[in-house]
Amino acid sequence: MTRTVPNLPDERLCWLAVRDQVNRKARRRGVLGWLTALFRPRDSWEGNERAEDAADLRRETASGKLHKYAFAVDIVAETLTAAERAHLRATGEVPPHFLAEVERRVAERKKR
């Protein structure tokens, strides 16, 4: 079955190919997130406000992580070879090493 790939820039096609995986990684809770979820008071009004504040904080954190991933995807997309770009255009899939390189770029940027 032939897949129809929209006529978009390669950077955008790369983002569309990896966005579900990146979204899962960006929304992953850390230790503090799990502790907040496990030990928040469920009955009091103040507890509900704190839970809403924690949810807002998680969304802001995820949004910031998504920005870092989007930047890294654009950088790595520029390094694709002509054959990898042709494969991307034909199938809508990135090469196997693509996500690992994106992760490396995100970690490198995080260190700075």
Rank of each mutant, 00 (worst) to 15 (best):
A62H: 01
T4I: 12
H87A: 15
M1Q: 10
G33I: 01
A77D: 00
R112K: 12
E103Y: 05
I75V: 15
W15Y: 07
A62G: 05
R27C: 11
R29L: 14
A83H: 10
E93N: 13
E101A: 14
H97R: 15
C14Q: 07
R12H: 13
E49T: 08
R89G: 03
G47F: 03
A51N: 05
L80W: 08
N48E: 13
W45M: 10
V94C: 02
Y69E: 00
K111V: 06
P9C: 04
W45R: 14
H87F: 12
V18P: 01
L80M: 05
C14H: 08
C14S: 13
H67W: 11
G92S: 03
V22I: 15
G64H: 06
D56G: 08
V73Q: 00
A51S: 14
E49V: 10
H97A: 13
A82Q: 14
D56F: 09
A107V: 03
D74N: 14
R112H: 09
F98H: 02
R59H: 07
E49I: 08
S63C: 08
S63L: 10
P6Q: 06
G64P: 01
E101Q: 15
A54R: 00
A55K: 15
R3C: 02
H87P: 01
E84P: 02
A26I: 02
R19K: 12
Q21E: 15
R27H: 11
E52M: 07
D10R: 06
Y69V: 01
A86L: 13
E49L: 13
V94P: 00
E52D: 12
P41I: 06
S44D: 06
R109T: 06
K65A: 10
D74C: 12
R28K: 11
P96S: 14
V73T: 02
V5I: 15
D53V: 07
V31A: 07
L13I: 09
R59Q: 11
A54D: 14
W45G: 08
K68C: 07
K25Y: 06
A37I: 04
A72Y: 00
W34K: 08
L8N: 03
V5W: 01
E60C: 07
P41K: 09
V106Y: 05
V94R: 04
E11N: 05
A86C: 08
D10G: 02
A72P: 00
A55E: 13
E84N: 03
Q21P: 00
R19S: 09
L35E: 02
H67G: 09
R59P: 02
T79L: 12
A54Y: 03
R112N: 08
R105T: 11
D56S: 12
L16I: 05
K111A: 15
V73K: 00
V102T: 03
N23K: 10
D53L: 13
R24G: 07
S44Y: 07
L13R: 05
N48D: 12
T2D: 11
R12T: 15
L35V: 07
